[in-house]
Nucleic acid binder design. Structure first.
Lengths: 351, 351
DNA sequence: GCACGGTGTTAATACGTATTAAGAACCGGT
DNA sequence: ACCGGTTCTTAATACGTATTAACACCGTGC
């Protein structure tokens, strides 16, 4: 492959008999390009095609122009190209909306020195793109603050807080959806609840819990116990069995569970309930506060009562919000997306 | 988005009492930076830290050339983000290898004026990336020739020929795999064959057919009939039933089928054989010359005897070849990838 | 004292693009 | 003929960085 110098706008200008500034007006196609006469415009395009011209993305970025590239970056260790990945539908929504808006999608998946990072040697790699959608549960909050400080346009998928800065994000309304789930359960007659959440305290977890407490307060019920999902250590089943026994002894008739991104905890819950002879929903109603992942356990899959977050729609909405940010001088924005209830069959009237 | 100006190397230079060139030497850390005195270097780093300096990647790229982006473009009308898409595994392989080599992957999926094209107003959009992997069965051969003429580095996935130019590609060895399949069937005792192929005459179809004829010649057998897969028009089943009847009357004991990208033809074949009371493989052995797609028909899925092409590996190999092209001045290259046999249960001894 | 080599810094420049104010040409009205 | 407005093009400049040859200074040897 010969390393021929690529043609620049100066080359096009010479070939078309105009100035480089005119070439730029035509090629960049902005509002000012309307000033250019049609015959001049055509001469420039002909010359560009003949010489095989294409824009130098770096030069355009340096000058503050746009490359019509939107980036996608995840803080998770695995890039979401596996269809079973929780984040895969977000990628589909992002890809679809990006294409529709006439942008190409840049997957920031490169690994250097065994790691994938936004900042490498102080250089923000994301700036190759005009803006970026960010995914992931376990974020680096310092990196987010850095992105805000350098005014790099991004939209995070999910609600996140970083002290001292305001972020743009598209987030499911977990507060409302969880409150509605409690409302539904109390309408069925449930008065005693238990609640299982992941051990970390990320914002989505805190939002669901806030919705839980709102739902209880609405129904005039006292605060009720919140527990952490056991991890997958050897004693986890025994721990869960003990919790289950305690709940039943306390008169708990409904359990709310925030699913993790794998289905291990839900599989364990079903196993422990079956071992204890507890039927779902006859003896204990169980509602999930989100979608379970595709089950990797053998056997029929339960149709859980839950709410579902529209992941593809959220990916699309993130792109829409990001493009709004690119087009305006306003500050960070937040968008809330409703979750949809799914009836399922894991909830019934209390015994 | 507030428009605060970010600190530049000129600002650092002023704060440290040195020139911008000295700042650049320190920050870029190349071989030449060893010339800078330690106390000067420290003053620069202190000033950079105090002012919150980060490198502008676009300016650095403009000065140096490459963006470390590899592109992916498909000539198919749908971008392969659906996991059932024939091309999805290629995308997975491309993404994985691209990340490993420290490049980010740019999906050229943008749609303008209702279309997705490489050349728009004569401008090659792919050139935002350093090079590009191309996919698709129904290609625009003129576009490929244009890419070659402008020395744009690309690798096509699959063997393709364009008059007057030589292309770089990674291709399955369909000739060898089909010849081996014929060899296997003749070893089982089959002497009379029928062959079904798609109606178009793309290179992969021609390669398989060449392998078929090689296998026959090896076994000292005369040429045998080649037919086109019926389309999905109303009379297609009748047409296929007539062919089946003719084959059986002629003593055909083995059928070779090149699968299309959908499974419609294979579903039809199974239906027609069952209607005619022809059992596979007892009455007629059937071997597929490639992978069938995931079946959309209800019921158990047959384990077809076939060869399989390693689509993810091919995606990876395409990236490897593309990076070789980027790093060398040599001309176009071709790489052949072996297909793996799958025993399946649709082939047996002739009656 | 002069010449040479080594060390350290910098002025100048280039990379390729986008923007803007200025200039030129043209047209219509008075 | 002159003036003002419109259309179109362009000279000049900026964006932020990396590179290179030139320069200044110092030390050493003759």
């Amino acid at each position: 492959m010969s390393q021929r110098r690529r043609p620049t706008q100066v080359d096009i200008a010479r070939a078309a008999g105009v100035s480089q500034a005119t070439v730029s007006l035509v090629i960049s196609g902005g509002a000012a390009s309307g000033q250019v006469a049609e015959h001049t415009r055509q001469a420039v395009l002909d010359a560009a095609a003949e010489l095989g011209y294409t824009v130098n993305a770096a030069a355009r970025s340096l000058r503050g122009g746009r490359n019509r590239l939107l980036g996608l970056y995840t803080f998770e260790s695995v890039f979401p190209v596996d269809q079973r990945d929780f984040y895969f539908p977000f990628l589909l929504g992002v890809e679809e909306a990006t294409a529709e808006f006439g942008y190409d999608l840049l997957l920031f998946s490169s690994v250097t020195s065994g790691e994938r990072r936004i900042y490498s040697d102080g250089i923000n790699r994301l700036k190759v793109a005009d803006g970026c959608v960010l995914l992931g549960r376990h974020i680096d909050r310092a990196v987010l603050a850095d992105l805000v400080h350098e005014d790099f346009p991004f939209v995070f998928v999910g609600r996140r807080e970083v002290p001292g800065v305001e972020l743009s994000y598209v987030a499911p309304d977990y507060v409302g959806a969880t409150r509605d789930m409690v409302r539904r359960l109390t309408a069925l007659g449930h008065r005693r609840f238990a609640y299982l959440r992941p051990a970390d305290h990320q914002e989505p977890t805190r939002d669901r819990e806030a919705g839980f407490r709102q739902g209880l307060a609405e129904a005039g019920l006292p605060d009720q116990p919140v527990h952490e999902l056991p991890d997958d250590s050897p004693g986890a089943d025994a721990e869960l069995a003990a919790l289950l026994a305690q709940w039943l002894a306390d008169g708990v008739t409904a359990l709310l569970v925030e699913p993790k991104e794998d289905d291990q905890a839900i599989v364990a819950l079903e196993r422990v309930a079956a071992d204890a002879g507890v039927r779902i929903p006859e003896d204990l109603s169980v509602a999930l506060l989100g979608d379970p992942t595709r089950s990797s356990a053998p056997g029929p899959v339960r149709d859980w009562t839950r709410f579902t977050l529209p992941r593809e729609d959220m990916g699309r909405a993130a792109v829409g919000l990001l493009l709004e940010l690119l087009d305006s001088d306003d500050g960070p924005r937040q968008l809330s997306v409703a979750c949809a209830p799914v009836d399922g069959d894991s909830v019934g009237r209390p015994r």
